[in-house]
Simulated scan of single mutants.
Amino acid sequence: MIRVIALDLDDTLLRSDKTVSPESLALLRRWRAQGHHLVIATGRPPRTVAEVLPRELFDVPWVCYNGAAIQIDGRTIFQDLIPPEDTRTIVEMIQARLPDCIVGLEVDNILYLNRAIQRTSPYQVADLRRICHQPAAKILFFQDAQFQEIMADLRPLLQALPASTRALLSEKYNLVQILSHSADKARALEMVVQQWGLGLEHVMAFGDDVNDVEMVRRAGLGVAVANAVAEVKAVADHITASNDEDGVAQALEALLAGQLESGVG
């Protein structure tokens, strides 16, 4: 039986205008009113989760940074960070091999960028070599070019990453995210639900991008929104409507009506 809903935010629960629809919020209230659990599982840092999530959902667990941190009631209870020595190595590699890239470090819920860009969320411009002495939740870099245009330079860089790390490439945003090799939404989500005496087989997980693949695959009921990338749809048990068509609400309503089953008793 499904007892937990795990929700990615951007392009999944959130509409394109970065809001949660009244329909989705109403279904989530119904779900929680029946004594079930809800978890947010996102690539966002905690500070930007708070910018878009309705306040009534601030009391649910947040899996942030693609699984590199878990926050409950504003308190970080788990972190899986990149060691400082590997952070420095990666930053130097990126700046040497892709000097035109925007490079960022997520450290202590602050985003540091190597230069100023047009961005709505707050960040600090810094010499990243001065920040590298601290463990990082995420290293990211991006530029205007499509991945295909820089793949000749990108491939050897990714192959040279320290063994403590792994890379996520999202063509939706022309963005490379580097995490601890063990940081993953599915792993962090499993840690959360174990506190309730449950396993991933009791989870209905929603996602749209490559960082959601393992969570959707391992969940008792994995759901891809219609706007998801092919990798997520390939592992999903069910494909719902898009984020702008209240896909989360439609699937959750079907679950509550007994029209979606995980096969777990």
Rank of each mutant, 00 (worst) to 15 (best):
M1F: 06
I2F: 02
I2V: 06
I2D: 01
R3H: 07
R3W: 00
V4F: 00
A6N: 05
L7T: 01
L7D: 02
T12H: 07
R15N: 14
S16E: 09
K18D: 06
P22W: 07
S24L: 01
A26M: 08
L28H: 01
R29L: 12
A33Y: 06
H37N: 07
V39M: 07
A41L: 01
T42D: 00
P45Y: 03
P45S: 08
A50I: 01
P54I: 04
L57G: 10
D59T: 14
V60R: 12
V60Y: 10
P61L: 13
C64D: 05
Y65S: 05
A68G: 13
A69W: 00
Q71T: 09
G74T: 03
G74A: 10
I77H: 10
F78N: 09
L81S: 13
I82R: 04
I82N: 08
P84D: 15
D86G: 02
T89C: 08
Q95E: 15
P99G: 04
I102E: 00
G104E: 05
D108E: 15
D108M: 04
N109S: 10
Y112S: 08
A116G: 04
R119Y: 11
Q124M: 06
V125A: 04
I131F: 08
C132Y: 07
H133M: 10
Q134K: 13
P135L: 14
A137G: 15
K138T: 07
Q148P: 01
E149A: 15
A152C: 07
A152H: 10
L154E: 11
L157K: 01
L158D: 10
L158K: 02
P162Q: 15
P162A: 15
A163I: 03
S164G: 14
A167H: 12
A167E: 10
S170E: 13
L175K: 07
Q177I: 02
Q177C: 10
L179A: 09
K185E: 03
K185F: 06
A186F: 09
A188S: 15
A188N: 05
E190Q: 14
M191Y: 11
G199C: 02
G199K: 02
L200W: 05
G207I: 08
D208C: 13
D209P: 06
D209T: 07
V210Q: 12
N211A: 12
D212W: 10
D212C: 14
M215T: 07
M215N: 08
V216P: 00
A219F: 02
G220K: 03
G220Y: 05
A224M: 11
A224C: 13
N227G: 15
V235I: 09
D237W: 00
H238K: 03
I239F: 06
T240H: 07
A241W: 02
S242C: 15
N243H: 15
G247H: 03
V248D: 11
A249L: 09
A251F: 00
L252W: 05
E253L: 14
E253G: 14
A254D: 13
L255D: 08
L255W: 07
L260D: 12
L260F: 04
G265S: 12
